[in-house]
Design a protein around this nucleic acid. Structure first.
Lengths: 301, 301
DNA sequence: GAAATAGTGTCTCTTAGACACTATGGA
DNA sequence: TCCATAGTGTCTAAGAGACACTATTTC
């Protein structure tokens, strides 16, 4: 089995090679991270009896400089030469939220040549999920203008055509992001083709109002991933406070999945993932609800 | 709603800004792609009656230069300044296999600072799945020494400890790659921690013989993903030839999932994803088997 | 006929969906 | 007492696991 120190065709061993190594001066892309920071927010409620509505929210920042001056973008920044990509993402996440210990996962790396009009930039996107109650301060103090946007996600249309050999399906997805001041919207076309066995998916912006760069694609990708993972992992609990009722939990699932669930089935399914506490809600104008917490023992690997 | 041409604090509109933009000369990382090209190979069989065994195989290249001279690495290369990351991956894939229309998906971007001893390199890994019968030539003609390695993947040990607040689970995974000439092996520790609600996974190489860089981590990640996707997508069909028997298909599933399946249940489950043809196998030393093909209509989105 | 694989029938157990029903606190 | 939500019981249908059984070819 080969092992160091071997010598290469120039007679150098590995140590010598590395000492003499010259990285060369060809052009390199810049690398950035972009953060999709989601939370669930309770809306105000006028009827004392009804439960507060909730919505999924995403943190955006208004750009203070060209390009896309005045438009909204995902928070993010360059990856420094002496920090890992994940460290850069954690750094950005902390600078926006001011809290530690937030769920974060890498999503996708966007590498199209023209995605930034200034220069070649490759961006690695990360999704973070935060319990809104843990965010004491309004997020993004340092950033020029950060705001939480309510997220809505609809499938407008699905069209399938079967060619001689291949199948092709196009789906139009509309994404609307709404803050107290602004309303952004855009449409993305997802194209799925199958040639022989080979399935391939591509994304394309059809129209976009108020978004910077290709960030609308990142939003669509993140929501798709969040929905997918909600079905077969515990990812949703990252959006919950330490104690919650099963109704609250069910509503968060409903928001993410975009469909209503039956309470009885939901409770049976979720039962083993939560632990009942002896506390309950009060002063709700209706029957009190027991508070639960996440069962950490459940399904590690 | 803000729109171009707005002027920034320097009085420039977007067009002027971009014309004057200077990307700066700070240090940038290099970006590469690394390809995990999997296939399923039939082993030779001496007993005319028995079906040939199959194995999952991965394509590796023996390094001809420092660092890791003589050791094995995933095929890959630099992302050029004027090609997208995906284009670079397709280019590498084509140069190894000489065929088009191969299933490929982005896996993960590896961004640790020290992952390449020469310089700062960020690598985006892709997984590709090939039907072995479509590869007419021995792959990797141009590369110095390319070889297919049989893949085996075992969980050696799982240890869980519950601290006061947190839960921590460590899993040791052994990966063995075996070609006709060589046998490489390594062990990876997967650490999963839960603090409060927040679940986090990290990977670490415990020992590694014959692998270059952090490529063993990439192999483990890819197999984990492949297993996961085998359960809830049609990804496996990318490893199959155009026509196949249900027994063959079942065996490929068994290889990927690492467990035996019951034929009756498997057939019921897979039935709607395949289409029966009027052809069947012959000269097999036992009852002939009908040939099926992939049902492309099944479950687009 | 033996060996080996191909393919089916059926029982059980689990789980999701549907929906009716009971329970409880506050105005 | 009504309202709104909390929470349970039970029927049904679908699907996975188990396993016995039949079918078909080659030597």
């Amino acid at each position: 089995m080969p092992n160091q120190p071997f010598t290469d065709p120039n007679g150098l061993n590995e140590e010598q090679f590395l000492q003499n190594y010259n990285a060369g001066s060809y052009e390199r892309p810049s690398v950035t991270v972009d953060m999709l920071i989601f939370t669930v927010m309770e809306q105000e409620q006028n009827n004392y009896r009804k439960l507060a509505d909730k919505s999924l929210q995403l943190l955006l920042i208004q750009r203070g400089e060209h390009p896309f001056l005045g438009q909204w973008a995902l928070p993010g920044g360059f990856v420094g030469i002496s920090e890992s990509v994940e460290e850069a993402a954690r750094r950005e996440l902390y600078s926006e939220t001011n809290i530690d210990n937030i769920y974060m996962e890498q999503l996708y790396t966007w590498g199209d040549v023209d995605r930034d009009p200034r220069m070649r930039v490759i961006s690695c996107s990360y999704m973070a999920l935060v319990d809104r109650k843990a965010l004491d301060v309004q997020a993004g103090d340092d950033a020029a203008a950060a705001a939480w946007f309510d997220v809505s996600y609809h499938i407008l249309e699905t069209r399938r055509e079967a060619l001689e050999q291949d199948v092709r399906q196009e789906t139009l997805v509309e994404i609307i992001l709404e803050s107290e001041q602004e309303k952004l919207s855009g449409v993305i076309k997802l194209t799925e083709t199958i040639q022989g066995h080979v399935r391939q998916v591509s994304r394309e912006i059809v129209r976009s109002a108020g978004f910077s760069f290709d960030h609308l694609l990142m939003v669509q990708y993140a929501i798709e991933r969040l929905r997918g993972k909600a079905e077969y992992t515990d990812i949703i609990f990252n959006l919950m406070p330490p104690l919650f009722t099963l109704s609250e939990l069910q509503r968060v699932y409903e928001i993410i999945l975009g469909k209503e669930l039956l309470a009885a089935a939901f409770r049976r399914k979720i039962a083993e993932r939560v632990i009942e506490t002896d506390q309950s809600t009060r002063d709700a104008g209706h029957r009190p609800s027991k508070l639960y917490r996440y069962n950490r023992e459940w399904n590690l690997f």
